[in-house]
Amino acid sequence: MTVLRRWPQVLWLTVVWVLLWGTISVKIVLGGILVAAAVTALFPLPLLPRLPFRPWALLQLGGYLLVDLVVSGVQVAWEALRHGPRAQAGIVAVPLLTDSERITTFVAAATALTPGTVVLQIDRAGGRLYVYTLGLRRPDDAARVRRQMERLQERMVRTVGEGR
């Protein structure tokens, strides 16, 4: 039974179902499990090795992203107000620390979530991310972006990296 092996997806969909109902009752939970199992069986996603679950690292990553969201939010706002139409930016090549596709995807998503940066291109063969960054003033600022991205990648690997 492939649905049974996908139990995390069924569990997650059931949680979403219950949250959408807004109340919890036996009928709703059972209905949710039924719908989730049906969706999982009808639209199967590829089975990937399960992500490690490290609650503490996950919490730290969440906190880090939240702080980043606020800090860079202020920076983007400042850039828009202070420089406006003369705002400057740069595209920086950042070395990838991992060859895991999944972690690369997470890193790219986290980069896009923080204001001021977005991944333009992923060069997996060359092991590089090309990151657009708003608010660069001088070419030396590229080093700062590389350091930031390195820290983000380290955190990501610590949270969802495979193996120990």
């Binding site: 828009a80 406006g84 930016a89 896009a112 204001p115 708003l134």
Partner: peptide, 14 residues
């Protein structure tokens, strides 16, 4: 206020 599409994208989404 920002000059081009990627810069505006930063302001529009984040």
């Amino acid at each position: 206020r920002l000059p081009d599409l990627p810069a505006r994208l930063q302001a529009a989404t984040k």
